[in-house]
Amino acid sequence: MKLVTLTMLVYPATVFAEVSDKAPSTEFFWKIGLAAAIICFVGARMKPWLGIICFLPVAIWFGGLFLELHSRDVGPHLRLEQGAAYFLQAYAAFGISLCGLFAGYVLHRKSVT
């Protein structure tokens, strides 16, 4: 126990916990975004209201993520650790899910007329 305490006093970086350990990975963003794009596309292609219902949980999840990314206590540290590309990928993954919803809606409209 004394060795651990001494190590923390001499080399405090050993007890540094990164902020990005608690944040989702960019791979997880893309998995959520692509899965949501496919589900929303199929739902909106069948019925537009179904695509919107499928999109609501994704919008809530990404909304919570964006609140965390832009919070005053986590956001700046996350930007230092992960860089701006982390933020861009989060927005791009959300954009992919929106594109799936809009593409399904457009194809539904073309099939009706």
Results as ranks from 00 to 15, higher is better:
residue 2 K to N: 13
residue 3 L to C: 10
residue 3 L to D: 15
residue 5 T to R: 00
residue 5 T to E: 15
residue 6 L to M: 14
residue 9 L to F: 08
residue 10 V to D: 11
residue 10 V to F: 09
residue 12 P to M: 00
residue 13 A to V: 08
residue 13 A to C: 01
residue 13 A to W: 07
residue 15 V to K: 04
residue 20 S to T: 01
residue 20 S to Q: 06
residue 23 A to P: 03
residue 24 P to E: 06
residue 25 S to N: 05
residue 25 S to P: 00
residue 26 T to C: 07
residue 26 T to D: 01
residue 26 T to A: 04
residue 27 E to R: 13
residue 29 F to A: 03
residue 31 K to Q: 02
residue 33 G to E: 06
residue 33 G to F: 01
residue 34 L to E: 02
residue 36 A to H: 00
residue 37 A to Q: 07
residue 38 I to H: 05
residue 39 I to Y: 05
residue 40 C to P: 04
residue 40 C to I: 07
residue 42 V to S: 02
residue 42 V to W: 06
residue 43 G to W: 07
residue 45 R to E: 05
residue 46 M to T: 15
residue 48 P to T: 14
residue 50 L to P: 08
residue 50 L to F: 13
residue 51 G to A: 08
residue 52 I to G: 00
residue 52 I to H: 10
residue 52 I to T: 11
residue 54 C to N: 15
residue 54 C to Q: 09
residue 55 F to S: 04
residue 55 F to H: 04
residue 56 L to H: 02
residue 56 L to Q: 00
residue 56 L to S: 07
residue 57 P to H: 12
residue 58 V to T: 15
residue 59 A to N: 09
residue 65 L to T: 02
residue 65 L to D: 06
residue 66 F to T: 08
residue 67 L to C: 15
residue 68 E to I: 14
residue 68 E to K: 11
residue 70 H to Y: 14
residue 70 H to Q: 13
residue 71 S to D: 14
residue 73 D to V: 11
residue 73 D to C: 01
residue 75 G to V: 02
residue 77 H to R: 08
residue 77 H to I: 02
residue 78 L to P: 03
residue 78 L to I: 05
residue 79 R to F: 09
residue 79 R to H: 10
residue 80 L to I: 08
residue 80 L to K: 09
residue 80 L to M: 11
residue 81 E to K: 06
residue 81 E to W: 02
residue 82 Q to N: 03
residue 82 Q to K: 08
residue 83 G to K: 02
residue 84 A to L: 15
residue 84 A to S: 15
residue 85 A to T: 12
residue 86 Y to R: 03
residue 86 Y to S: 07
residue 88 L to K: 13
residue 89 Q to F: 06
residue 90 A to K: 04
residue 91 Y to W: 14
residue 92 A to M: 11
residue 92 A to W: 02
residue 95 G to A: 14
residue 96 I to Y: 04
residue 97 S to L: 12
residue 99 C to A: 15
residue 100 G to D: 01
residue 100 G to I: 03
residue 101 L to E: 12
residue 105 Y to M: 14
residue 106 V to Q: 00
residue 106 V to N: 09
residue 107 L to M: 12
residue 107 L to T: 08
residue 109 R to S: 09
residue 110 K to Q: 09
residue 110 K to A: 10
residue 111 S to I: 03
residue 112 V to T: 02
residue 113 T to W: 06
residue 113 T to R: 07
residue 113 T to K: 00
